[in-house]
Design a protein around this nucleic acid. Sequence first.
DNA 1: GAGCACTGC
Length: 693
Amino acid sequence: MSRFWKPGTEKPRLVEDEEGGVLFFSASLTSSSGYGYANLEKQRQRLPVYKYRTAILYLVETHATTIVVGETGSGKTTQIPQYLKEAGWAEGGRIIACTQPRRLAVQTVASRVSEEMGVRLGDEVGYTIRFEDITSTELTRIKFLTDGVLLREMMDDPLLSKYSVIMVDEAHERSLSTDILLGLLKKIQRRRPELRLVISSATIEAKSMASFFNTRRQGRDDEEHGPKKEPAILSVEGRGFNVQIFYAEEPVSDYIRAAVSTVLSIHDEEPSGDILVFLTGQDDIDAAIQLLTEDSDGRKKGLIVLPLYSGLPRADQDLVFSPTPRGKRKVVISTNIAETSLTLEVTDIENLVVAPISKASARQRAGRAGRVRPGKCYRLYTEEYFMNEMSADGIPEMQRSNLVSTVIQLKALGIDNILGFDWPASPSPEALIRALEVLYALGVIDDDAKLTSPAGFQVAEIPLDPMVSKMILASNDYGCSEEVITIAAVLSVQSIWFSARGVQKELDEAKLRFAAAEGDHVTFLNVHKGFIQSGKSSNWCHKNHVNYHAMKKVDEIRQQLRRIAQRLGIALKSCEGDMQVVRKAVTAGFFANACRLEVSIVSTCKEIFDISPFKTKLAFSHNGLYKTIRSSQEVYIHPSSVLFRVNPKWVIFHSIVSTDRQYMRNVMSIDPSWLTEVAPQFYQQQQINPRPL
DNA sequence: GAGCACTGC
């Protein structure tokens, strides 16, 4: 692998790791840098997948579906599209598509392939992700895209007629959009026998994938013309190295201490090489780092201890990838952010795992240790536990997600019988029915479960959760689309606040500067207004504990939503500060999440106050108990909300996070009369009770 | 006074 990068030259860029060809590459990897085209060609031929070039082309020619089982590093993603192009699959204006679950993978793979082909990215080889279409209608023959984008394309071109071959990469990850895509592609195949599918999958999934795509009818030989209906399976070996696995001899009681002591004994006994530890969350990571750095008997000498989690500032994350100084050992303590998408620029990785995860996930983690040379993996659970207790795979997203978006997407594509749809992993009928109920309540499907016109089609057109889309539609009636679109954009990013360890108090104070009595949604508008007035200044964000990158993204999403709104005939209009209409529009989307305050314990006990700080805490901890109108579920306002401890009588929420309690995140106060105003079909006029569905 | 993480249009 190191042939892509010479130490001491330019620092390699970190890229998606899944394909051998793109493990490390730097911007200087062009013909002018001394690596000629011939060299790239040689590298291509050295990839494991090269041996199977002819076989792959033969199978694609003769089979409707080819399943390529490829280990990490086989080169399948970068090479197969090129082989197909070389064999003529992109002739006559046709396009070869290759989908990825993640944006970063799309960009890096596309740029690698354009380099290998010696063409400008965006010409013959291009890519499309949300907000970025680097393709040319005339020139692009190989197109990389996220599976979500391909699904959107189907709304305009249901048969995906411009593609000759569609390669679905990383199908084993079973992401929601990959699964929907696979189900739809199977349907398309029936209408377009000339279309070829290449499904790239991990070993364990290959058989079930093959039987899913096997459309050959028993006892009928209709295969004399056209490709075989029975999928072909081809295995391509990877280039990973051997990883030795060690198990705990008996169950560990305190896994953080166990992780720390394992790190220390590896440091004492093993030769050079870095260590990657997986823990569950930020708190555990902080605790482990504390333990490691306070161990002062001298053993920690030579250890560089680094945390890694998504909330960490980018600069701190980058530290993880800087080369380890000679004579030192790097210990990266990470959440599962490091499980799939990153390859650490280290010479060797040793790996500790904390259960429970799935077996597949554990294998993936162990694989991290064998990326660049043989490694070792220390599992902090017993072998019996691995064998008998851990589930084989994670549950596909399809079977654990809210399906409202999925259902409306399928409806928009003309799939009427959702319950009968052929999924690679069927969701439970209950989950589907729940989704249909919500869509019915929103007025986007009718009594026959058909999309309503225009609302249903409009909601399907907007790339957001249907409840958010409905809120945007409603804003047209209330004359506040500009404000509501801003709220929708903020709700679709993780968090607009900049949180870091040790600055919680400052963040809370900053929030107070923007806090609105009406709740979080109106607070978002205040933050956005400040951001715009500052001239979108990063300095302003920094001073106010606002996440600059999140705000840039909010702006980008806002622009996209404004364009879509205009196309749908929604007038872009500001209500000039009239927050009541904004709140009504939000309620029109989220009326199903309405809650009423049940108990409010105000801290009136002065004596408790005076006894001890601990008890003061107790007195404050009585956050108001709410119950959802729909199902009388007990919920509480999340402490990150500006309405925490304010406890308005009636609220609606955007989402729930379940821990020891159910916490409402992003909460807004409402007037209960609005519920019957915006959703009379859902709430009975006389009393706020759920309408039986 | 809470907090697993990640991905996508």
